[in-house]
């Protein structure tokens, strides 16, 4: 197997595994759907992809092929061209650089391929967009954390920071901004340092936490906007001797994460860890929602294009130490990621 084209390798693997499981059912009018994910290294996307394959086959007899964007805008854009070349009936996109992908999307639409987007609309193409309702969860997490902090340390002013993708519109509108609003809704005097670029991954997140908290030890609410960043965030905190709760009370800070997963469950419900809340993005419902939306378009129930992109929201969950117990969280995980 060629080992130089990493994208091809990943895609080929997915395709070949699918070919085995879905080959037989691909009889009659089975549609071929390209299912984009931004980064298959993320457990959420892994589960989402697996669920989509299964759900599409069971409900619609459609074959899903997963396209891994590898957390790289260029790869995602190239993948759009692959859709046209690969003779797909439809594609549900997950693209970071919508501008760059627009010409490819327009070409695909011209070819009669049905396009929908996930997470962010694609510029002014007007294709329908499926989104998790992240904003309300982010807001709720911010509010819960601010409340908990004020309860424990009424005399220490809130100073918050976010780690993620400062230049990314949807991350901002779904995570960064509503989180800040949530905190401010509890304590209007809270100080916000802003969002720091952690797009390089967990090592970058760790470096930022170590450097920032050495120079700004007063930071006490941290929103780590992806679960793999949270690994780095917690490692950084631990290096500084922070990251701890005592008897359910915060000592130095409270951390929120996104993409609640099997690794995070132990932290969130650990009475001694400062990671206390995480956004539960349901891969199952997201996958179903994305597949349903694209099938709706294929079947004419939703317009393929409109002046401003129609947005379809799916539920996201707030998995919180304060509002949920561990058993429930594990049950949730099991239903979403297990099986």
């Amino acid at each position: 197997m060629g080992i130089f084209g990493k994208r091809i390798v990943a895609t080929t693997l997915m395709v070949s595994s699918l070919a085995v499981s879905a080959g037989a059912a691909l009889a009659d009018d089975g549609k071929r759907i390209a299912f984009f994910v931004s980064d298959l290294s993320n457990v959420f996307h892994q589960s989402q992809a697996a669920a989509a394959e299964k759900y599409a086959m069971e409900k619609y007899g459609a074959k899903v092929v997963v396209f891994d964007g590898q957390a790289d805008s260029a790869v995602m854009t190239q993948n759009v061209d692959q859709v046209v070349a690969g003779g797909f009936d439809a594609a549900t996109l997950h693209i970071w650089d919508a501008e760059a992908a627009t010409p490819g999307v327009m070409d695909a639409l011209d070819e009669g391929i049905v396009m929908t987007s996930f997470f962010s609309p694609i510029t002014d193409t007007g294709i329908p967009t499926a989104r998790s309702d992240e904003a309300s969860v982010s807001f709720e997490m911010g509010a819960q954390m601010a409340t908990a902090w004020k309860e424990a340390h009424p005399d220490k002013p809130i100073v918050m920071v976010q780690l993620g993708w400062p230049n990314h519109t949807e991350v901002n509108s779904g995570r960064t901004a509503p989180f800040v609003e949530g905190v401010l809704s509890v304590d209007a005097s809270a100080e916000n340092l802003g969002a720091l670029d952690s797009s390089k991954g967990q090592e970058a997140a760790k470096q930022i936490i170590v450097d920032l908290l050495t120079q700004r030890p007063e930071v006490n609410l941290i929103y780590s906007e992806a679960s793999n960043l949270t690994v780095g965030t917690m490692a950084g905190l631990s290096q500084l001797g922070r990251g701890k709760f005592e008897n359910g009370k915060p000592l130095t800070e409270i951390v929120a994460s996104v993409d609640f997963d099997a690794v995070e469950v132990d932290h969130v419900f650990d009475p001694d860890s400062s990671l206390k809340v995480s956004m539960g993005l349901p891969p199952l419902e997201t996958a179903m929602g994305r597949i349903d939306l694209i099938m709706d378009v294929l079947e004419g129930k939703v317009a393929p294009q409109s002046d401003t992109a129609e947005e379809f929201f799916y539920k996201a969950y707030t998995i919180s130490n304060w509002t949920m117990d561990k058993a429930d969280a594990e049950k949730w995980l099991d239903s979403q990621f297990g099986g």
Binding site: I3, F4, K6, V9, A10, D39, S41, Q46
Partner: peptide, 13 residues
């Protein structure tokens, strides 16, 4: 080559 092998083993993730 090295990164390629790593990606094969992790299925790119």
């Amino acid at each position: 080559v090295a990164r390629g092998i790593a990606q094969v083993i992790t299925h790119g993730s």
